[in-house]
Each structure stands twice: as C-alpha cells, then as structure tokens.
Write a protein that binds this DNA or RNA. Structure first.
Lengths: 345, 345
DNA sequence: ACAGGCATCCAAAGCGCTTTGAATCCAGCT
DNA sequence: AGCTGGATTCAAAGCGCTTTGGATGCCTGT
C-alpha cells in the first residue's frame, strides 16, 4: 500500500493525503479523520526511503562503534548507552543506524555515511588523544555530538562528558583519607581521553596528599575482567603491594576482586577497591548496599541526553554548540576500609 | 556532489556513470576507470536513499532489541552479537538498523519497519514461548532469521541456535559424575525459549542419574550479577544447600561466585559451578586455565553466521529455510571438583 | 556499398514521497 | 450581482538514483 493507492481508495489526491498525515493545517478535520482512519486500516506508513529522498532528511542517526584491540572488543557500556539513545530517537521519530568498524577504517566510515546521505547526524564514541574526528566531521558538515570530549578544549563542538578528573580526584582522596599510602591505578586504555583525565585526577590527588606515585602501581589496558585480574594479581605479588586499587570500570574491578580473593585477602579489609560504575543494567553494583565503593554515573542516561543534544542541533543548526559536564556520585560500598598492615604480611 | 553533477563534470550521461559505478558490463574499461577516478576525487557515493528508492531494496537489516524487565535491561550478549553481524553486513554492503523497544511495543516495531520499507529483513532476538513473531513476520512477508528458536519445531522458518538442551544435559551429567547430588539450576528467564531448553536438559540428566530435583534448587530470573548473587546466597542458606550450581550465564556465575566467597566457601572445592559462556569479549573466561567450567559457544560467531543466513535468504527468497544447530564445547575450568561433605557443615 | 552485429552510450520513465503554485468552492461583504 | 478572501483541494515538479529501450558509431564480412 502506497500513497497513490491509498489516495485513490479515498477519492482524494496524494497531496491531500500526505498533508493530512503530516499534520499540515490546510486540510479539514473531517477529511483528516477519514484519511487517518484509512491509513490505520490499511496499515499504511509513508515509505521512509521515499520520504527522506523528498525531504532531504533521512531521520536517521548514525553510531560508529569502534571495535578495539586484537579481540575487537565491544565496550560493555555500549549496550546501555544505545538503549538510552534509542529512547530519545523513538520518541522523536528517528531511526538509529550502527556501524561497527575497526579503528583504522573509522574515518572512512564517517565519510561514507556523509557521502551516502545515510544519516542526519552522528554520535561520536570513545574520543581519544588527537582525535581527528572533530575536524573531519566539521569538514563533512555532518552534525555531531561527542560522548566524552576530545582533548581539544574549545567550545566549537558539542559534547557530553562526565567529570572524570574530579571523580578520580575525589576517589583517590577518599582512599588517602582512609590512610592508604600504597594506591594503585588500574585504568582503561590511556590513548582514550577519559582514561587520561582519570589518571590526571588520580595524580592530582596523590600529589596533593604528598604521596608517591610508583610506576609499578600504574596500569592501563583493555577494560576486561581478565585484565583487572592479571594486573591486580601482579601488583599484589610486588614486594611492596598496594593496599588499595582505584579501578576504571566495574568489570575490571570484578577481576581485581577475584585476584584479591585468590590471594586469600578480603576486599574492604586488607585491600580496598574503588571503581567507576557506569550503572550497566546487568552489572548493578549491589541492590541494598553497594558492593563497590564507586564513582557513579548512568551511561544510559548519558545516551538519552547525548541523543537529545544531537537532535537539538539538527533541528537548529545555527544554535550554539552545547557542552555538558556531569558530576559523578561517590557512593560508599563494602569494598573500602581503613588501611591496615595486614596486606604486607 | 550527486550523480548529475558528476556526470556533467565528466561529459557523460548519468546512465553511464551509474552503470560504471555499479559494475555493469556495458561501459568500456577506459571510461569506467575515468569515472571511478572522478568519483573518488570528488568523494562521490550514490545517495543511499535515492538508490534504495530506485532499486526497491533498502540494503539495511533491522534488529529489534527488546529491553526486558523493570530495569529495561539490555542483554549483555547483545553487543558481541551485533559486532559479529556487523562484520557480515559491512562485507556485503548492508547497513544495520537498531530499534530498542519495550516488549509490549515489539510487534508494532516490526509492523512499522515493514510498512515504512525501512529494512530488507530482520534478525529476531530472544525467542520466547508462544512467540507471535513467526506468524507476524510471515504475514508481513519480511525475510527473517531467528537467533534461537521459537518453540515451534517446524522447518518453515530459518534459525540459528545452540543446542541448549544437550549442553545443559552434559554439564549436569558432569556434575553428577563428580559425585554431586545436590545440584541447583540458576536459569535465565523461563519465558525465553533458551531457558526452557536448558531446564529440560538439566531435568533430563538429573532424571537419568536418578537424582531429585528440588524446587528449592531451581531459580530463574534476570541474567544479572545481582540475581546470581542473591539466588546463590539464598540457596546456600538452605538447611540442605546445593553443592553445585549450574548457571545460565557467566554474569550470573560471577554473582554466584561472590555469594560462595561471602559464605567463606571456595568455588571448585566446597561448591562447584558450571556456567554457560557466550565468550563475551570483555568477560573472557580466563586466559590460561578457564575460571569456570563452562558450556561454551561464541555469540559473536553466531551473530556473523545468523546475518549470513539472512542475507542468503534475501538474495534468494525462494530458497529453502535453513536451520543450524550448534553444539557447545564443554570446557573444564577451575570451578568444579568432586562433591565433598564440607558444604553442609 | 551495405547489412549485421557488437560495443558504447544516452534519453526518459519511474521509484514514493513532499511541496510549490494554482485551482476551486463557498461564505461574507459592498 | 460582483468582488474578496479564507478554506480546501489538487496537478505537477522534483528529490537522486536505476533501468528500459533505444540510438549511435564502428567494425566485420560479403
């Protein structure tokens, strides 16, 4: 069933039917009702392809998902971010288009989306150091919003980010205040902007507290459970092991917990752990008391809001760029406690 | 830059340029080369919208992702499945379109995709008992492949599934062979087809071994870490606690491990755990020795293959439907051992 | 010299919609 | 009666591509 057939059935012109469906005022209420009823009866919806060709807007938002590392890992926060963004799109009548792509083909993927007029805008994931995507997307004149920031601090593009530096400063200070002096950082891949900021927050707070930062106690890598386990295991085997871990993702923290348990130590007693918690739906940080003391921010909420910012920008391309910096909660859980001497025995 | 402009620049007709780009033979090699060079220079790609309107194919595959439960959880295996499917799509020149949708709106989402001609086919996720989607999609004449099976056993639709029943039979038998008599099942939501089959496998093997199935030792719910923790905790508190857990997802198994540790028990010693492992990229089941004894099948590989089946079906709608049933590995890890009396003390 | 055949190329129609500009109708007013 | 103007409706152009059905030119063989 297409527009022409429907209009013939109704004895009206395609023009009128189209206007009725799209809510234009130049059609009487009675015929509008008649048209909408018929559309429903025959389950008619305008063809998205024809519509977007005619209007010049595809009503589709693109997400280019970089798969990283040898394992081509998909970031675990991704599902929840998408779910949040999807709510916004659904409410606004937009579709969501995904491309998963190896990092080296990423720029080509954006170029391609733009050249094919496949999307009206994109959300940019996982900004990194010297991220070339800001310039590229500007050149392509494709509306975009970053989830996270490229390290460039100018106001010339829109982004939504959490205050990674502050969150990790506060978390580090908490550990210092609990008397910990041997604090390790298990960070995400430090070519990524968020990881750099978290490290900076950690370093700031350690220096403020007059504490040593030992290279042995710094690690960065893939945000997998294995990496958390292996890194924590290795550090706990050091002659002078850390008494506390600051961890960049709850998945790595679960690995760290496994390492701690394997050494016969108790998390929250001999060893403390603070992690960042994205509030991933299947990895809730406990139901009553949080399992981990954590810096917390909902990535799903971020998805919803980032999508809103992008749709706003598409609706009014002349509007100013928008920057939103969200503070994280610092929630106390069972994984932290005062420093003890036990871990060194 | 559009086709017309490019063809004017080249002094050729749009027809010829189009044919050159789409690889038709009626254009000389020299002009084809010239055209392709110009297309590259001006970064021209045919508009996807116009192309799909003209060809009648959208070159897009839809995935309708149901969010489940009060938390609107996104299944954690989803990211890896999508990554696998995405590889297939990219290689074949297809795009991927996602809608996340509440379960009650799911049928409407499919209807809408079909009516708007937005996709050439869909992959159906998370089949359930009495799944209405088989009939609906047939009625809509939209090509589809199920990831998993609807319980209907006919050959009239295509699916790719793992042999859940067999996997859980074997896993259960392993635990029985290790001397366990108190075996608990922590299953996924039993309105889902896969969970029903796993339960059936468990029951089959228990009956074959002449063992009791105690309602106390059966649980089904959301595949979250919390659910695994709470369920295992509750069961371990029973007057007669299980000595082994068969768990439907590695995330729940991580929760169960936490519960076991919290009771001062050791996984693989006092309590055994076997889990299903989808080989999620960020939750690798250990690097050297597997942490968990597990029934294993790569969900990413499944995504890749399911997408292939769908594209095949789109390419030849008259071809027979295809069913693929994959067997799981049963890999031994550190989480299982012989039954002891310790757990009951 | 001419028909036939092949290799190239092109004009125009059409995909299903939106949207411009115009037509039609029917009060309401002078 | 005649004019104006608002309320409806419509015909037709156009979005950027593919594809049908020629057209053109060139080479062959007779």
């Amino acid at each position: 069933m297409n527009l022409k057939q429907l209009s013939e059935k109704l004895g009206l012109s395609p023009t009128t039917v189209s206007r009725a469906i799209n809510g234009y005022p130049e059609v009487s209420e009675t015929t509008r009702m008649r048209i909408l009823a018929a559309a429903k009866e025959y389950n008619y919806s305008p063809s998205a392809r024809a519509k977007s060709l005619a209007t010049g807007r595809s009503m589709t938002i693109g997400h280019v998902i970089p798969t990283s590392g040898a394992t081509e890992m998909v970031n675990p926060i991704f599902g929840d971010f998408i779910a949040g963004a999807g709510e916004t799109y659904a409410a606004a009548g937009y579709d969501m288009m995904l491309s998963t792509v190896h990092r080296e083909n990423e720029l080509h993927a954006y170029r391609d989306l733009a050249a094919r007029c496949a999307v009206d805008g994109v959300i940019v994931h996982a900004p990194r150091l010297n991220d070339p995507r800001v310039d590229l997307l500007r050149e392509l004149e494709l509306p975009f919003v970053f989830h996270g920031r490229a390290p460039i601090e100018d106001k010339s593009y829109s982004w939504l980010d959490i205050n990674n530096t502050r969150a990790f400063e506060r978390a580090t200070k908490l550990l210092c205040d609990l008397g910990h002096r041997n604090i390790a950082l298990i960070n995400g891949d430090e070519t990524m902007d968020f990881a750099l900021r978290r490290r900076r927050g950690f370093v700031n707070a350690m220096e403020a507290a007059g504490q040593d930062i030992r290279p042995d106690w710094l690690a960065a890598g893939e945000m997998t459970e294995s990496f958390g386990f292996e890194t924590a295991s290795r550090m706990l085997d050091l002659p002078e092991p850390p008494t506390a871990f600051l961890v960049s993702s709850i998945i790595m923290a679960i690995g760290a917990r496994r390492a701690i348990a394997a050494k016969g130590l108790r998390m929250g007693r001999e060893v403390s752990v603070v992690t960042h918690d994205d509030e991933i739906s299947y990895l809730k940080n406990g139901d009553t008391e949080p399992v981990f003391t954590a810096t917390r921010s909902s990535v799903r909420e971020a998805g919803r809001r980032t999508a809103e910012l992008l749709l706003g920008q598409i609706a009014d391309p002349m509007a100013d760029t928008v920057q939103e910096l969200w503070e994280c909660d610092l929630t106390l859980g069972a994984s932290t406690g005062p420093a003890t001497e036990l871990a060194r025995t």
